[in-house]
Amino acid sequence: MIKVSILYPYRENGTFDVDYYCGTHMPLAARLFGAVLKGWSVDIGINAGPPGTPPPYVAAGHFLFDTIEAFYTVFKPASETLLADIPNYTDGGNGSILISEIKVTV
């Protein structure tokens, strides 16, 4: 199984609409990805460890797929719609993508 993570860096005075991201953007992606998508989640940054420190990322969206090929198959036709929606929840751009292989779950 692979996980596709989109990491949105924390920026002082940057905007990120968590409610829109969780309630509109991620469900939109899930609908566009269809049955190939095995699950999704969102992490919201709290801090960088020590109390009072800003988090390295304001948010991270995660999608689970069986294979990287499955992801690319559904992402290519959905990409234009999803990229066009980004300004609705952040002024910080596209974020960084990390594609990883899940080795252990508990």
Rank of each mutant, 00 (worst) to 15 (best):
I2G: 00
I2Q: 00
V4A: 10
V4G: 00
V4T: 04
S5Q: 06
S5W: 07
L7C: 05
Y10R: 09
Y10L: 09
Y10T: 06
Y10M: 07
Y10Q: 07
R11A: 14
E12C: 04
E12P: 01
F16E: 00
D17M: 05
D19K: 00
D19H: 00
Y20C: 04
Y20V: 06
Y20P: 03
Y21E: 00
C22T: 05
C22L: 07
G23R: 02
H25Y: 12
H25S: 01
M26F: 00
L28A: 14
L28I: 03
A29F: 10
A29N: 06
A29S: 11
A29M: 12
A29D: 01
A30W: 00
F33M: 10
A35K: 05
V36Y: 09
L37D: 01
L37H: 01
L37K: 03
K38V: 03
G39S: 10
G39C: 11
G39N: 07
W40Y: 15
W40V: 02
S41W: 15
V42K: 02
D43S: 12
D43N: 13
I44Q: 14
I44K: 14
I44F: 14
I44S: 12
G45H: 06
I46W: 05
N47Q: 12
A48P: 01
G49T: 05
P50A: 15
P50W: 13
P50E: 13
P50R: 15
G52K: 05
G52D: 04
P54A: 14
P54I: 08
P54F: 11
P55F: 14
P56H: 14
P56T: 12
Y57I: 02
Y57C: 06
A59Y: 07
A59G: 10
A60E: 02
A60M: 08
G61K: 00
G61V: 02
H62P: 03
F63R: 01
L64D: 09
L64I: 08
L64T: 06
F65N: 09
D66G: 13
D66H: 08
D66F: 06
D66L: 04
T67M: 01
E69C: 05
A70F: 04
A70T: 00
F71Y: 15
F71W: 14
V74M: 10
F75H: 13
K76C: 08
K76S: 14
P77Q: 12
P77D: 15
P77N: 15
A78F: 06
A78N: 03
S79V: 14
S79E: 14
S79F: 12
E80C: 05
E80P: 00
T81G: 04
L82D: 01
L83T: 04
L83R: 11
A84Y: 11
A84K: 15
A84I: 09
A84T: 04
A84P: 02
D85P: 03
D85N: 07
I86T: 04
P87L: 10
P87G: 08
N88A: 11
Y89G: 05
D91Q: 00
D91T: 01
D91K: 02
G92M: 13
G92Y: 07
G93D: 05
G93F: 09
N94F: 09
S96Y: 15
S96P: 01
S96L: 12
I97A: 12
I99L: 13
I99N: 06
I99A: 12
I99S: 07
E101R: 11
E101I: 03
V104Y: 13
V104W: 12
V104A: 12
T105E: 14
T105D: 10
V106M: 11
